[in-house]
Amino acid sequence: MNAPARLAVVGFALALAGALATAVLDLPAAAVDLPAAVAENLSTSGVEHPVTAVLLNFRGYDTLLEIAVLLLALLGMLAVAKPEAVAPEPSAADPMLRFLASVAVPLMILAAGYLLWAGAHRPGGAFQAGAVLAAAAVLLHLAGRLPAWASPSRMLRLGLVGGFLIFLAVAAALLAQGALLRYPPAHAGALILLIEAGLTLSLGLILAGLFLVLARRPASPRAGVGEEGKS
C-alpha cells in the first residue's frame, strides 16, 4: 500500500475515533432500563447471579448459538489440519514442568469445579470453568503428559458435542412449556446446573482442542529435548 493510501487509512481511523468520542460524550441516559428488568425477574430465573441469569436464561439462546460457534471453529481446524503431522514425543518433557503440571492440574480441576458451583450465585460459571479446564489440558500437553490430537475418537467427539446436545435437548424439551428455553421457575435452577455442568466439560474439551489440534506438528529436533531429557 502506498504512502498516501496509508495516510488516508490513518486519517480515517482518527476521524472515526474522534467522531465516536464526540458522540459518546454527553450521551443522555438510555431509555430502556434493562438492569432493573433483570433484577425484577432474577427471582424466577433459577440463579442468584445476574450475569449467569442473563447468560443462561434471559439470553440463553445466544449462549446456545455461541457454543455452536466454538464447535465450528474446532471443526474448521480439524478440516484443515494436516493428516500426516504427528504429535511431539511426550517423553521429552522436562521434570520441572511435569512437577508444575502435577501440582497445578489437580488444583485447576478443583478450581473449575468451584467456578461452576460459584456461577449460580456469584461471578463464575461454565465458561470460566471450561477455560480453566482447557488451560489444564494445555499445561498437560506442554509438560508432555497429554498427546496432541491426531483425530478425535468417538468418545472424544461425544465429549465435544455432549454439552451442546444436552443444551439443545433441554431447549427442545422446554418447547412444551410454551417457548424455546422457557424454564419452569421451579426447575430452572436444576436445569441450568445440568446445562452448565455439560457445558463445562464440553467447553473445556473444545477450548483445549483449539490448542491441541493446532499443536499437531512434527517435533522439531530441538523442541523439548533439554538436558534433563537425557539424564
Binding site: 522436562d94 520441572m96 514442568l97 512437577f99 508444575l100 501440582v103 497445578a104 533439554g226 538436558e227
Partner: peptide, 12 residues
C-alpha cells in the same frame, strides 16, 4: 510454584 517453574524455564 508457578514462578519457580517459569523462572527455571527462562533461566534454562
Amino acid at each position: 510454584v508457578a514462578s519457580a517453574a517459569v523462572s527455571f524455564a527462562i533461566a534454562r
